[in-house]
Computed example of a mutant assay.
Amino acid sequence: MNHSLQWRVVPLTESHGRELCSWNYPPPYDLYNWPAWETMQHEALEFADPLIRSKQYGAVVDEDDSLCGFVQFFPIVGVTRLGLGLRPDLSGHTEKHGKGKGLGAAFVKLLVQEAKRRSPLNEIDLEVLVWNERAIRTYAKAGFVITDTYERQTPTGMATFHCMVFSDEEDQ
């Protein structure tokens, strides 16, 4: 069963934002946890800012409208940079049909389709920490390739990232 066939991208609401702030990823992925909703609102961070939320964010929901993930479509000239997260209990899982059939690649492919729909001429890329091999494998399965590696500042200090660009098989 491919759960992603039931998933769709909808506008991210304030209620979704509150729920995202309650998600807790286990170490070492806990650095992806969002601050408390009250902190996000007070500092007008990311999806707590209504304008940023409406222009850049989407919620990924299932057939019951349960929140399964989120996506940010960050605009750069000629590029849509994806920011994304899958609900912690869905992360790192594989389906019954064997290795390599996890939910992550289908989730990312759905987000790529939505990014193409929103900005069909843009390149699609994302950044991933170099140590996050699970995410790198997932993104590669979804059609992304590493094009650059660099260090940049994060809220917790300098970190090394790969930039991965979506490569449509039809273009190869």
Rank of each mutant, 00 (worst) to 15 (best):
H93S: 14
G83H: 03
K99L: 08
W23Y: 07
S54H: 10
D64P: 02
G157D: 08
Y25K: 11
W23M: 04
L121T: 14
L84V: 06
E46S: 15
E170S: 12
Q56P: 07
V61N: 00
K101G: 08
P35H: 12
D168F: 04
G102R: 04
L110T: 02
D64C: 10
P11E: 12
V165C: 11
Y25D: 03
E63C: 13
D62F: 07
Q113A: 15
V60L: 01
G98N: 00
L86I: 12
N122A: 13
E151H: 14
F73D: 11
D125A: 09
D62K: 05
P26F: 04
H93E: 06
G92A: 11
L67N: 06
S167M: 08
E95V: 03
E123W: 08
V108I: 09
Q41V: 14
I136Q: 03
W7K: 06
E169Y: 05
G104Y: 00
Q113Y: 14
D148G: 13
E46W: 07
T156I: 05
H42N: 10
E95D: 14
G69F: 09
V128K: 04
A159N: 12
V9I: 14
R53A: 02
G100A: 09
E38M: 04
I76T: 13
P75N: 12
R87W: 03
L31H: 04
E133P: 02
N132H: 08
S15K: 03
N122Q: 13
L5T: 04
K99M: 10
